[in-house]
Design a protein around this nucleic acid. Structure first.
Lengths: 162, 162
DNA sequence: TCAAGATTGATGCAGCTGCATTTAGTAGGC
DNA sequence: GCCTACTAAATGCAGCTGCATCAATCTTGA
């Protein structure tokens, strides 16, 4: 546990932190300038819109998005406040509930995706060949101990972040 | 501006977000468990300790760390509160000031670096050969439009994040 | 059947971030 | 000298995050 990282490993660490932060900032900024809410909202709407009947349990959402429970709870609050989702009672488990995406929520998700995908293209796609992007994925995966199987779903009609 | 990103680019984006977040969390968590303050403190202490006489202007620090002005201001507050740095009057420009690292600050920086470097080794170094780490750097640099020349300084006796 | 423990979701509090503004001082033009 | 524009740093406010905890409900097993 006392071994020091190589120069290369340290450099990779620094770049991973810096580049992610810059690219994320750039993308978030573009969405914001276009008048859209933060990416986390998009991720939630995407998950909901993909769910069988547009609804899921907060616990599910939490697992999909890899964010803590309280964070999910408050994110749902905000979506509900904005009319993008609605809480529904869960009859089989009265502790729980269902969250259902509304029409407005679906529309926003779609609109955001066109701005979001353009931003991804601008800040990632246009700077890397597909082959290099794939190489980057491979290297990153080695660090992340697998991102789950998200990759297959992901690029179909919207990409989750975080 | 309407071109959609390729599947590869989208996958790279997702991984960049996810892997960074996981690796950062893991490293921050280890520092926290060892009783250390957040990484941002480390970064600031490192910059200060490298400055000619252990002191620099907040504006400098801000540029080095790539964080906004108000963020620097408050970070310095916290360092000063903990006795890790001290504010010194700036005689040539009375609007300004110098921030000087204290002995305690230097010690903390060193102690943190041993925990921090171990964490980098654990979560990055041990998962990638040096050649692969270098490849990863190269690919990330293409996205980041250059991280500045930080790489050379970086790995000498401590690495900045963010 | 009922108490112990687990699970679902909400919430009070503290700390951090971003944004906008304020305060104080400097510099340049006239 | 003096007015305007600029720069250095701090700060009030709102929003978000993490942590710990709470209340309600469900599950289990004796």
């Amino acid at each position: 546990m006392k071994r020091k990282p190589s120069t290369e490993a340290t450099a990779a660490w620094i770049r991973l932190m810096r580049v992610q932060s810059r690219v994320l900032d750039a993308v978030e900024q573009e969405l914001k300038k276009a008048g859209f809410p933060p990416l986390a909202w998009y991720d939630a709407l995407l998950e909901l819109s993909r769910a069988p009947s547009g609804e899921m349990r907060p616990v599910e959402l939490e697992k999909q998005m890899l964010i803590p429970q309280y964070s999910t709870s408050r994110l749902i609050d905000r979506l509900v406040d904005e009319g993008l989702a609605a809480r529904r009672e869960c009859k089989i488990d009265k502790r729980g509930q269902f969250v259902e995406i509304t029409e407005a929520g679906r529309e926003l998700q779609k609109k955001m995706w066109s701005a979001y995908s353009a931003a991804i293209e601008k800040h990632v796609g246009s700077k890397l060949s597909d082959a290099d992007a794939a190489k980057l994925c491979g290297l990153l995966d080695r660090l992340g101990c697998s991102c789950g199987e998200a990759q297959l779903l992901a690029a179909r009609d919207g990409a989750p972040a975080r």
